[in-house]
Design a protein around this nucleic acid. Structure first.
Length: 375
RNA sequence: GCCGGGGUAGCUCAAUUGGUUAGAGCGCGUGGUUGUGGUCCACGAGGCAGUUGGUUCGAAACCAUCCCCCGGUA
């Protein structure tokens, strides 16, 4: 099969499970996509990321554009070969950096000019240039160039921003064209305003994309407000195409999003937290920095089968974290990614079996049962 | 032994030259981190000022004393 397609296998309530087919392999949904911004999932070998169960990784247009540059990656055979990952890659367009690096850029109708955080040099990203870079990288799923505004923001600002993103979506589509086997995803904006989200969805459907993202969430609004938005936003998007919630989230955010009809998610949390000592387990968050772990011989999670839990005590993981040894980032990142992928496969099975509601009850019950306290 | 410099938070050091409740960075303790600027941010604990005595309304600061550290020198 040499094309990009999405097969919906089952639904349970609003939750869905299925498969995205790409020439580079299948993506089982709901999918969690680890973030590999700079052509690496930090502290992990690609084979290890695959072992946790990941079907697809993220890369980033802005960061790779600055270093080592898209042209260099293309000359070296593309991003897959460059980073030794032969499965699908989704690249963010740089739209998120319009927000996260907001004091280093200037925004106009044409696009965004960034002042490099590395050497101060100027780089302009337009919808057209973002498409060009993502094609040079060889990205399987290309994201439209958008503006992701921080929340809270007033309705006027959100509306103007959304309209700009929709004009950029049309330009992105025109620049990308139609490339069999590759996908371009549109990104819905509109903040927490239902009607603006609806207008945005309408604009995207008119343009037509291989998948649709809910953008502009998890940017400061809180879980309750985000869920409120997800109660309508996914259903404003086409049901027969993948729905991608960008940048989310914590485990309970992910479960809530899947319950509301989301098929794909990405988040830096499991990998970044792996480097900052925050550990995700069935029973909630455990902070390996805490002094109370220094004599604890137990693994992070008795039932986890990841290398960190099979071979090492909390006391050891505490020690190597405090000593800033590299193995700390490696083991904790591995554990977190493994936990996230277990979460996803659990949800996929439950949705397929029609038992997702009971699965969610178990999920929340395990978190309420906090047996992560010291011995 | 003599000459010089120095002893302030666990560590490295400040303090407009005698004036309210002695500060910072790191470390320590605890949160936070959602399309990754290998981070960053927030809050907290921690001091009988080497010793003893003196001068003064008032001393980390001035004087004396002893103890310790560093450099030089015999």
């Amino acid at each position: 099969m040499n094309k990009f397609s999405f097969d919906l296998a089952a639904t349970d309530g609003r939750a869905r499970t299925g498969t995205i087919h790409t020439p580079r392999g299948e993506i089982r949904t709901p999918a969690f996509m680890p973030v590999g911004t700079a052509a690496t999932v930090k502290a992990m070998l690609p084979g290890s990321v695959r072992e946790t169960g990941a079907d697809i990784l993220l890369g980033n247009t802005y960061h790779l554009m600055l270093r080592p540059t898209a042209e260099r990656i293309a000359a070296l055979g593309g991003l897959h070969k460059f980073m030794n990952w032969d499965r699908p890659i989704l690249t963010d367009s740089g739209g998120f950096q319009v927000m996260s690096l907001s004091d280093l850029r200037k925004l106009t109708e044409e696009g965004v000019t960034f002042k490099s955080h590395i050497d101060g040099s100027k780089h302009t990203l337009t919808p057209e240039r973002s498409m060009e870079i993502q094609e040079l990288l060889g990205s399987d799923i290309v994201m439209c160039f958008d503006e992701c505004p921080a929340l809270p923001a007033d309705r006027d600002r959100i509306g103007r921003s959304m309209e700009l993103s929709m004009r950029w979506a049309a330009r992105s589509r025109a620049a990308f064209g139609d490339r069999p086997g590759y996908a371009l995803f549109g990104i819905q904006q509109g903040g927490l305003e239902e009607d603006l989200r609806g207008q945005s969805a309408e604009a995207l459907r008119e343009i037509g994309f291989e998948g649709y993202a809910v953008g502009g969430l998890a940017v400061g609004e809180g879980q309750e407000a985000m869920f409120g938005c997800l109660d309508y936003a996914p259903e404003q998007l086409p049901a027969d195409k993948p729905r991608y919630l960008m940048g989310v989230g914590k485990p309970d955010d992910i479960v809530g999003a899947v319950a509301r009809g989301i098929d794909m998610m990405d988040c830096v949390l499991p990998s970044r937290s792996g480097r900052t000592g925050q550990v995700f387990t069935r029973h909630g968050v455990l902070n390996i920095k805490n002094a109370r772990h220094q004599n604890d011989p137990r693994p992070l999670d008795e039932d986890c089968t990841c290398p960190a839990c099979r071979g090492y005590s909390r006391a050891y993981l505490h020690h190597v974290f405090r000593a800033q040894e590299m193995i700390s980032s490696m083991l904790l990142t591995w554990h977190n990614l493994h936990y996230y992928q277990q979460l996803m496969s659990g949800m996929r099975e439950a949705i397929a079996a029609g038992t997702f509601e009971a699965w969610q009850a178990d999920f929340h019950a395990a978190r309420a049962q906090r047996d992560i306290d010291p011995l």
